[in-house]
Nucleic acid binder design. Sequence first.
DNA 1: GTTGACATTGACGTTGCGTCAACCTCTACC
DNA 2: GGTAGAGGTTGACGCAACGTCAATGTCAAC
Lengths: 249, 249
Amino acid sequence: MEWSIVEIARLAGTTSRTLRHYGDVGLLVPSRVGKNGYRYYDEQALVRLQRILLLRELGLGIPAIVEVMDGQRDSAHALAIHLEWLAKEKERLDRQIASVELTIRNLEGGKQLMAEQMFDGFDHTRYRDEVEETWGADAYRKGERWWKSKSKEEQRAYRAQHAEIAADYQKARDAGESAESVSVQAIVARHVDWLNLTAEITGGAITAQRLRGYGDMYVGDPRFAKNYGGLDGAEFVRDAFTHYATNNL
Amino acid sequence: MEWSIVEIARLAGTTSRTLRHYGDVGLLVPSRVGKNGYRYYDEQALVRLQRILLLRELGLGIPAIVEVMDGQRDSAHALAIHLEWLAKEKERLDRQIASVELTIRNLEGGKQLMAEQMFDGFDHTRYRDEVEETWGADAYRKGERWWKSKSKEEQRAYRAQHAEIAADYQKARDAGESAESVSVQAIVARHVDWLNLTAEITGGAITAQRLRGYGDMYVGDPRFAKNYGGLDGAEFVRDAFTHYATNNL
DNA sequence: GTTGACATTGACGTTGCGTCAACCTCTACC
DNA sequence: GGTAGAGGTTGACGCAACGTCAATGTCAAC
């Protein structure tokens, strides 16, 4: 028995385009090709096609199916590998769902500024435990109110200033300057000025001790460290802070 | 403050290629373009980029991000829609994982022939409840042994014959022939011969009553119906069976 | 002036086909 | 034998979101 491409497609529940694709990639070639170029498939091809479609429904990719069909790998092994991949995908999805749900809750709670915008090198008040030890238990809420009391323009300005400072640390570091160099210490001076803008929350100017605390914070928390170019950058900034605190505060 | 494309990419933790892509699709255009064609970004662009990347991490597609960033849709709403999509994906994944696990178990149990190859219009013994009522409680196991006792060649031949019969029903139906027509009844005759090949399991020849039972089975179970072109096809075959059973058995 | 880092604009590759487009071929009917 | 209609063929683009060359211009520094 022999079928045309459309006939076998309907028998197997797929389309002729798919069959031509499988022919192109060598997964299932026609058992015969007429001199007019028409493709014809026999019952062997039908059986093979049905196995292919079964594996496809299980989510295997074409390369994996090819391996199984060519006998290079047995079905159970291929499926076991595939299962691991599926498990990873599921984990990823679960994490993403959790993140989205959290973000939605934060948005609904009006905390979107904290979540989306403040915590990138700017908001020192989110470092809960340390913050509360240092400035009291309600510093977190105070910080939130303080930030929200600022206009969009002011918020943007704060953020931009900090980005500039961080970029300048980067440049200095790339240029091979030491943390104690005059130019880097000048950046620290600007950084301290910027930190002092938060005096309303922290309840006082930046002291030597407080500056050293910030430096350690940057190194210890990757969420801050990334704003200064990762761990190395954070250590550089901490060293600069230490030197500045010793000599200028 | 103003950054080059590579500078802002590093600040935000992405690549310059991504930024050029965002420029192409209008998601984030440079705040300034030099007369040499170089792209420059200011702090507004940086803030916008950071929001974009946050939404991207949550899994939103570019069109959805565009809508949010242009203020056409608020973040919470977009995320809620996205969450539904994620939930559907998770369900799909869960189903697929279950299918793969089942298939692996069947393969390990040596049942792959039953699972992968027999159940497409051929193996009537898998229709457990009805089978056991009709032919006894161990018909299922008997059927499995019987099938496995056949050589690969024999198995292929059985399957091919059935596929041919099913295709002939299709053709007749497409040609507008009635289930009672002489040509269709001739197909039924071949089908009955084919069914009689299973006499070893079913313990006897096809009777009128038994043939009617098969017809109802095809209509009632989509797993069989699909082998005859879905419900309509199965009904056609059932009608042909009924007519044949009345007149020839 | 040269070097090296960085910039530009294409353009292809990825995954598995869906979907035209332009053009033959077979079957059936008049 | 002509014609219509169904079905066949080979391209080639599209999709999502960039990664990755390739060929070439530009800038900063020595």
